[in-house]
Design a protein around this nucleic acid. Structure first.
Lengths: 205, 205
DNA sequence: AGTTTACGATACTGAACGGTTTCGTATCGA
DNA sequence: TCGATACGAAACCGTTCAGTATCGTAAACT
């Protein structure tokens, strides 16, 4: 036991080497199944079948179901690029109107709620979850900080709060209400929030 | 089997009557335990122990674990009163700054994510969940509709979108980031959103 | 008193599942 | 060729748990 989970492809110098593609297949199968049946419904047998591997192969690389789940989740992070166009408005537009934006990833849409729920209940998951969140929020934080430096936003702007004002309505529809999240909605959220920021703390132009 | 779940105190005219308080104790125990250990960790035995009843008593009133969960969730709804002060601003303030606001219910804070996650995966739960949501959103919808009627908001305002703009940042902190949700944050969210609405579609005063 | 139903407690059953082991085979270095 | 390791498949083990049944008791009706 106590394999170094997190680096499942490392060990073994003699003998048959591990099939590198199996790890990816296992992680993908795990995420797909979590999206379909939730964590409670996820079984190691189903992961093995879906990934086309034997259970032994899974346990050779991860010490437990929980370790596998944590790895699978962290593999979702794939931070998106941070735009730097010189204007807050177009930076934000670029971030949210990308077609490959996370919000258009329907698997993540189903996995994410499972993460949130598990994080509320399991301390190990809580930690991984917060790392995930911090990673995901990094780009918007950078964009806002730069906007402050440029004088586009008030110097004492609460970056976290503004990030929430922009992200939350989309996240909320995406996660809680299953509402529409299309370009029009996104644009109107951005319009309203930026207008509100300028109205309550006018730019010094 | 096939007891009429949802009305667990009805039957039996002869013989010893059912203990009315047991149903409430069972529902409360269910919600508490879901908050503590999640749905996956919830066992009927633990519900029975926590509620101080026998398992038979639970199954006499609900046909299955799932039926019990659905009933327990729907019992959270307890719609809050809808303020009608004559002004959008103070209506919204009253709704969100109440000390008994749902957002200050820490049990619900842990149960709700479990509902969201389950709703993504189980069609029966999906239905109950959307009924729950509609019930919860009713007050804000009414407040916004009245504000439109008074001319405080543009006549073609998207009520659902504005509701999201107000609710989502709080909900997002409450549900996703575990961030602070105090009166100051709430006020600043309301300030910014209302300012943004008036800036993009000025009131005809 | 006698009947009927509910009660908490406890034992039981049957299935699902996490995790391990075994087996025959494949693929590497030496 | 040989030892070491990996592979998929499948059997296996031990536990957990939903749901049922039983028991002795309590509370209602007639």
């Amino acid at each position: 036991m106590t394999l170094p989970a997190g680096s499942p492809d490392m060990p073994a110098r003699r003998g048959r080497p591990r099939n590198q593609s199996s790890s990816a297949a296992i992680l993908t199968a795990t995420l797909d199944l979590v999206a379909e049946v939730g964590i409670a419904g996820l079984t190691m047998d189903s992961v093995a079948v879906r990934a086309g591997v034997g259970k032994a192969t899974i346990y050779r690389r991860w010490s437990s179901k929980e370790a596998l789940l944590l790895d699978a989740w962290m593999s979702c992070v794939n931070a998106s690029p941070t735009p730097d166009t010189g204007s807050l408005r177009s930076d934000v537009n670029q971030m949210f109107l990308r077609d490959d934006h996370p919000l258009s990833d329907s698997a993540l849409q189903r996995v994410f709620p499972q993460m949130v729920a598990a994080a509320k209940v399991n301390p190990d998951v809580t930690q991984a979850y917060h790392a995930f969140l911090a990673e995901r929020r990094h780009p918007i934080r950078t964009v806002l900080t730069r906007a402050i430096a440029r004088g586009e936003l008030d110097r004492d702007t609460d970056v976290e709060l503004v990030a929430d004002l922009l992200i939350a309505p989309l996240m909320y529809r995406w996660l809680v209400t299953d509402g529409v999240v299309d370009h029009q909605i996104i644009s109107r959220v951005i319009d309203t929030v930026l207008a509100g920021l300028h109205a309550t703390a006018p730019v010094p132009h």
